[in-house]
Design a protein around this nucleic acid. Sequence first.
DNA 1: GCAAAAGTTAACAGATCGGTACACTTTGAA
DNA 2: TTCAAAGTGTACCGATCTGTTAACTTTTGC
Lengths: 187, 187
Amino acid sequence: MRPNKRDELVSKALKVFYRDGFHATGMDKLVVETGVSKTSMYKHFRTKEELILAALRLRDENFREWFFKRINEMAETPAEQILVSFDALKEWFEEDEFRGCMFIKAGAEFQDRDHPIHVQAAEHKQLLLDHFTAVAEQAGARDPQKLACQIVLLQEGAIVSAVLLQNCDPAQDAKDAAKNLLATALG
Amino acid sequence: MRPNKRDELVSKALKVFYRDGFHATGMDKLVVETGVSKTSMYKHFRTKEELILAALRLRDENFREWFFKRINEMAETPAEQILVSFDALKEWFEEDEFRGCMFIKAGAEFQDRDHPIHVQAAEHKQLLLDHFTAVAEQAGARDPQKLACQIVLLQEGAIVSAVLLQNCDPAQDAKDAAKNLLATALG
DNA sequence: GCAAAAGTTAACAGATCGGTACACTTTGAA
DNA sequence: TTCAAAGTGTACCGATCTGTTAACTTTTGC
């Protein structure tokens, strides 16, 4: 199995799953949209679930890499990095292909807490939380874990609001709320 | 058509959709779980989509009624009402049957912004936003709309975190963040 | 008590689901 | 050049999907 074909499949499947959802995307649609034959798909992945898990793994890597890189480009100090994370989110929200958070959607479609897909979605959120906990520590927060929970909570809320609400600017609102939190947690 | 049978169907279908998801719930499963014959279902609703819309309508009524009633029981002043909304959410999170927000899930399974189900999910969020905008006005906030957006954003974030994160207390974290916001918006 | 309304069971369409089987072609390295 | 690995197309499997049909029973209002 040449690894590039497999990666190509996962990368294209990711796009379709993100755009159309997991249950709503059948394997036959993936054959058409990815250009990879069904036989080949089932050589690489024994089940649709395995393919979804691989797509989520790739999404997790891609998103965190982009998110943290963008944050580092925009700010240097830990406190500023927390704030500009909302500017990065805003850029994401304004993309044409923006369709909300893939892991919130995965958790919504596979609700059983023991389901591998739900578990993997939760792991992604935990990784983000761990990152911002470290940043909050560097920033000298009184209670870094709590501050990080609150920042992540604001991020989740901004994403959901960006999907379901119009006529408002959730990224900006969340950023302003974060400013308040930082002032209290650091002051 | 006796209205109570129809209501019974919608009410039971709501439970199944909430527990198992929309795409994952077939009409045959609904026949078994609701005890209503398939023929009768399709007399009341021409399509599954119409049934989902009716279930979401009921959920919207039930949830807002419960939420606002619980808030009014716990606090009298507008500012306090905003704060105790997070205590009400916490009670919800601790229910055995808690499975996240039905409207976030509906928006996640039906992503097209023009899709009737997505539209209806967005309307629910807008109604919540309108309510808290009015409360923020009563509380004398400088920018009631913005404060309400932020409060709702914290609520959404708390719900998502309650679903996907463990070992943390999103309702409490969100409440503390809301305290900060209120101090700034009212001070 | 009787007709109409509302309900039931059960079988059935036609499409799609995840997944497999088989025969064939392309690719890459020895 | 050759040969195995990897990929393709297509037909197919049984199950399940949304939705329909027909014959029958229960409930309800008058």
